[in-house]
Write a protein that binds this DNA or RNA. Structure first.
Length: 810
DNA sequence: GATTTTACGTA
DNA sequence: CGTACGTAAAATCT
């Protein structure tokens, strides 16, 4: 049935979808099925009345197989069939008749039909001129059905709809259009710098953006905006060749340094730009007041935070990202202006959400993250070469043996080839991947777990263990055999805001991530996943030591306080400040767990291991099946053990329940350090498990980063910081300075925090050695003054996120 | 040939 | 059980 457009004549908003579906086809009305329900919900969230809006589609009849491409001549969906052209004319007539103030394009087909544009992902949220009816404006966003499929898009969509609601109040398409002087001659840019410096930009910050070429991140284009409305951009490199002569370069750097050193700066991803400016221009940007990436992370941890996205949310400007290929300097200048505009928006947003403390906390991490990236980590050549040789031999030997046994050449790094070999050619029992839900389809796997299982089923066949050994050695080699910098270093980029995105949106629990540095592209990239054995290639200089300071049982301590487990809290408080031998003898948490579970005084090694595994599993709400794999026992035995554990630790289940209760309102949790996270998963076990992990992990991460910043700010001149590893800090120092350094680390890392109405102080352990991989535990008491827990609390004060928040709300 | 997705391994 | 990232191979797109 043909579907008509519905809604009151002359409505301010006109929603245009793609094509009718099954329910629309049956009723002749648009958006009445599943997608219609989603639309209603989205409109409700955005405060828009469906009854007051016009709603229709581009195509007026249901396409065969629900495929919109049937209405196009070409695969790319750019040449409409005569039928579709006729429908578009109908839409045009409806728009002209009703004269809405804003047309909301739902999905890429509507976007194309109304504006002629492709690429919804880049254009959503931006107000565009309508091509179908010139003079009208279009705001594209996701199709409701796309939100059903891609849950992460729901929040951006609501923001788009709110923006559309604002635009429905007036008819004109009025951009705030910045003035950009692009490709400025260098003399003009230097005058601009002088001028900014002289007037200090009237006390306001400037925003800076650089474009770089790889490798080496040399600056090709640089721009500075003095407000959201004016920027100048200049070209410094054309290809490989500098645009400046030597004299110009000296003068340019002189004034640039003055401006960047003395004025307050706005940047998007400051850690990158200031590192490049430091490395290549020897300029140290001291006063970064706003990193829009960090502000966006603090305010909206679930959302994308690239400039194009932030522009669509915060600004009313023309899309500009498409200029990057055609006019780099104009693009760069617009980046500057729009970063400035986004910054002004984000200042208010940080304040509106009372997240000033969190913002300051993350901003303070920029200098140390930049320093660590530029400094890198030195590799001991001889050790590296020897280890590469050893592991390469294992790879070759296992491969040779396997080829002899199997009788043909197989690439064991290819899951597909391995599947064929094991399950087809050799006919071994197939192993399936663990499923998230029973409804998910079974999938084959040849992972380590499957190979171990096969090895236990068929103990006489040596190939499983050989394959495992082969793959392990291959993997190890990737951590050893890598390109080093000219001075034998590896570099990593520490990312304060994390960076990964999954089907549900961004996750960010406040821990740093580590990835390959594009400024200094040496090493295996991530330094937070180096296996212990490969750590041996990072050695201290002769006469120096590497010290590791890590929080003891950090996450378990936080869980103890959060769940109000009095016995556990007492254990942690009683054992605070003890030498490790005494702590392990009397206050071993896993031994005590086992003692209680099995009602025994003397605990065997196995019983301690069970206690350890089960605590970890229970803290994160693992099921008996996973536990049975870890403990190598039957599922029923694992179930029995879990029940026993929960019987002895009833607080844990209560705590999990309280987390669920806390989620009920708006799926938002707040950590003891004041960090917020909104969970986007649908209500259910997956959401719960993810949220149980949030508070402990995030608290430990924030605690460690506070310590790291303190250490760098207070002792950066004297302490050589090497690495950040989530709950540990590594430094290097001369042998005779070990004691002193341990004292400083203890001073920096002991940080009392109010958790669940009690003061939590996580204790610290030290290890010292000649390399990152070979370290021995030491007692700090041998080197440093001893303070009781109470003395530490009195000296340091207690961090109270709740207090900070409530006092800033008024 | 380029880009995206999947599988895997480590903290 | 969770979070994180990187790498290689496969799969898909152009």
């Amino acid at each position: 049935m043909k579907v008509k457009t519905v809604g009151p004549a002359n409505a301010k908003m006109f929603f245009v979808g793609e094509a009718p579906g099954k329910d629309e086809d049956l009723t002749g009305l648009p958006f009445v099925g599943y997608a219609g329900k989603t639309l209603n919900w989205l409109l409700g969230q955005a405060g828009i009345s469906r009854a007051e809006s016009l709603i229709g589609n581009v195509a007026r009849e249901r396409p065969a197989n629900n495929k919109i491409s049937t209405f196009f001549e070409d695969k790319q969906c750019t040449i409409p069939t005569p039928q579709l052209i006729a429908w578009m004319m109908e839409l045009k007539a409806e728009l002209e008749e009703n004269q809405p103030n804003v047309i909301v394009a739902l999905g890429s087909t509507a976007l194309w039909a109304l504006t002629g544009e492709k690429g919804l992902g880049k254009l959503r949220g931006y107000v565009l001129p309508c091509r179908l009816v010139p003079g009208m404006k279009v705001l594209p966003t996701y199709h409701p059905q796309a939100i059903n499929y891609e849950w992460k898009n729901f929040f951006p969509c609501i923001l788009d709809l709110k923006k559309a609601k604002y635009h429905s109040k007036f008819r004109e398409l009025k951009y705030s259009t910045p003035q950009v002087v692009d490709n400025a001659p260098i003399s003009g840019f230097i005058d601009y710098l002088k001028n900014i410096y002289e007037h200090k930009n009237d006390g306001k910050p400037i925003s800076v953006d650089i474009e770089t070429i790889q490798p080496g991140s040399h600056i090709s284009t640089m721009g500075i905006a003095i407000s959201p409305m004016f920027a100048m951009s200049t070209c410094l490199l054309k290809g490989k060749y500098p645009c400046l002569n030597e004299n110009e370069e000296v003068e340019f750097n002189y004034w640039l340094s003055k401006v960047l050193t003395e004025l307050p700066l706005i940047l998007q991803n400051a850690a990158y730009d200031i590192s490049v400016l430091n490395l290549n221009n020897h300029i140290w940007c001291k006063n970064v007041v706003m990193d829009t990436l960090i502000a966006a992370h603090v305010c909206w941890p679930e959302l994308p935070r690239d400039l194009g996205f932030l522009g669509s949310i915060c600004l009313d400007v023309e899309p500009w990202k498409h200029l990057s290929g055609t006019n780099n300097s104009l693009y760069n200048g617009l980046d500057c202006c729009n970063t400035y505009g986004i910054a002004e928006f984000m200042y208010k947003e940080v304040e509106r959400l009372s997240l000033q403390e969190n913002f300051k906390h993350e901003m303070s991490q920029i200098p140390v993250a930049s320093m660590l990236q530029l400094q890198g980590l030195e590799v001991h050549n001889e050790t590296q070469e020897q280890m590469i040789k050893d592991y390469k031999k294992i790879v070759a030997d296992t491969k040779k043996l396997l080829t002899e046994i199997i009788g043909k050449d197989v690439n064991f790094a290819s899951p597909k080839q391995l599947q064929k070999l094991l399950y087809v050619d050799l006919g071994f029992p197939v192993q399936h991947k663990r499923r998230k839900s029973k409804d998910d389809p079974l999938k084959l796997t040849t992972d380590a777990g499957a190979l171990k299982k096969l090895a236990s089923i068929l103990p006489d066949n040596p190939i499983f263990k050989l394959i495992l050994k082969h793959k392990k050695a291959l993997k190890m080699n990737s951590f050893l055999d890598m390109k080093l910098s000219p001075d034998n270093r590896v570099h990593t980029s520490y990312n304060i805001t994390g960076s990964s995105e999954d089907a549900l949106g961004r996750k960010s629990f406040g821990r740093w991530s580590s990835s390959g540095s594009i400024i200094l592209p040496f090493g295996s990239g991530n330094l937070q996943n180096i296996p212990p054995d490969a750590r041996k290639i990072y050695r201290a200089k002769p006469g120096w030591k590497i010290i590791q300071a890590d929080y003891i049982q950090a996450e378990a301590v936080v869980v103890g306080y959060l769940s109000g487990d009095q016995r556990l809290i007492k254990l942690f408080e009683d054992s605070f400040g003890l030498r490790s031998a005494e702590r392990k003898a009397k206050y071993d948490i896993h031994v005590i767990t086992a003692q209680n579970m099995f009602s025994v005084k003397e605990v065997t090694k196995e019983q301690r291991q069970i206690g350890k595994t089960i605590r970890h599993a229970a803290n994160y709400s693992a099921g008996p099946q996973v536990l049975s794999l870890q403990l190598n026992c039957t599922t029923s035995r694992a179930k029995q053990l879990m029940d026993l554990y929960y019987q002895i630790n009833p607080q844990l289940k209560l705590w999990h329940q309280s987390i669920q209760e806390e989620l009920r309102k708006d799926k938002t949790l707040v950590t003891p350090m004041g960090r917020r996270h909104r969970f986007l998963e649908r209500w259910g076990d997956e959401l719960f498990r993810s949220s149980y992990a949030f508070k402990p992990q995030s608290t430990v991460g924030d605690l460690l980063n506070s310590s790291l910043v303190y250490l760098y700010n207070e002792y950066g001149e004297t302490i050589d910081i090497l690495l950040q590893l989530h709950d540990a800090i590594y430094v290097t120092c001369q042998e005779e300075m070990v004691g002193n350094t341990i004292g400083i680390l203890r001073d920096s890392m002991l940080r009392p925090v109010l958790v669940n109405h009690r003061v939590m102080v996580i204790d610290i352990d030290f290890k010292v050695g000649d390399s990152w991989g070979e370290q021995d535990e030491v007692d700090w008491q041998d080197y440093s003054n001893s303070f009781t827990r109470q003395e530490v609390i009195d000296m340091k004060g207690v961090y109270n996120a709740e207090h900070g928040r409530s006092s800033s709300e008024h």
